[in-house]
Design a protein around this nucleic acid. Sequence first.
DNA 1: TCAGTCAGGTGACAACGTCAACTGAAAGCC
DNA 2: GGCTTTCAGTTGACGTTGTCACCTGACTGA
Lengths: 192, 192
Amino acid sequence: MTSRAESAAATRRALLDAAAELLDEGGLDAVTLREVGARAGVSRGAPYRHFADKESLLIAIGTQAWEQLGDRTQALRADPGLSSGEKLRGGLNALIAIGRTQPHLYKLMFSHPPGDPAALARAAQRSQSEFLAIVAGLVGEQAARRYTALLISSANGIAGMQVSSQLADEKWGGITTEELVDTLVAMIEAQS
Amino acid sequence: MTSRAESAAATRRALLDAAAELLDEGGLDAVTLREVGARAGVSRGAPYRHFADKESLLIAIGTQAWEQLGDRTQALRADPGLSSGEKLRGGLNALIAIGRTQPHLYKLMFSHPPGDPAALARAAQRSQSEFLAIVAGLVGEQAARRYTALLISSANGIAGMQVSSQLADEKWGGITTEELVDTLVAMIEAQS
DNA sequence: TCAGTCAGGTGACAACGTCAACTGAAAGCC
DNA sequence: GGCTTTCAGTTGACGTTGTCACCTGACTGA
């Protein structure tokens, strides 16, 4: 009925899902290969048939998240009913939303693993190129590099501050991530 | 000769130094209580006389780094020979420099531990208040909150991008963190 | 049909964080 | 000074984890 390749792919997916679920529920420490295997319905050693080690499994989860964000940003960019500013705000808020709803996953997306620092960066590249294209429509090809780098860095930082609950501090007067994104985008729009 | 309190304080410091050294050398995974104890010249159980658990030790290291940064920013703010923009650039670049020279320590400073998320945030508060005071001198008390929150978030993000080597990507055209900070500060100065 | 491939299971090992029990020297008290 | 208390430090032990070597059994291709 099910070929070997099919069942292997299903197991791999089950492992990824189980690991992502554990990450969401209890953070990085909760992701143990034993528990991942158990939730996927296999033994503790089974993950080694699909991932070189635990780190590779985590990288795969982060890569998956970057790809989904890339899809979303691409859809925003292609939407003819949105202004450049709206596309920008939409994309940045989508990124930051991950930080709010899935903080552990978010940290994974921006933490370079010791083994292969380039792996996650490659996965992030497409999302970032989408942003670059949007900004280029605002301030031109030349300046877009600098502003996009600043934009993504800032969005990353805003989300990071939120993840570590530092934006909730009273000295900021209850500022929201959306307000920060609006301020940022407005400043960039003013450059055009 | 040496009182008990003195030798205990010396051991505590030796433990902190050893842990910070291991963190620098091999990242978070390299920091094991056994190795920390060994480098500090004590046994593997000794750290538990000074820190509740491994996490508390790591928090202490992060707190220490925030305090040093606070000292530095305070000195910058008090320097009458610097303009507000220069103070700002100096402080932000100091923060980012930690990301460049001690990436593992930097990640520790911005990662909230599961146990007490507020502990590190409290330590970061003073540094952030210093920035708030500087920005208030630029754009006024009212707008300072928003711009400082954005500023620190962005600096955090810039450093984070650098730590994960994502700024080195060719699509940014070899942009440096200093350029990003300059762009950011210039945009904020334009608001006054 | 049959040898080969490969997903999966199991036993084992070293390393780790952590705790309980112990030791010995400094500190406080009479 | 002698006694008791305190407490930094050590050691043995335990459960958990990542990882490997080895085994098994079902699917695959010829």
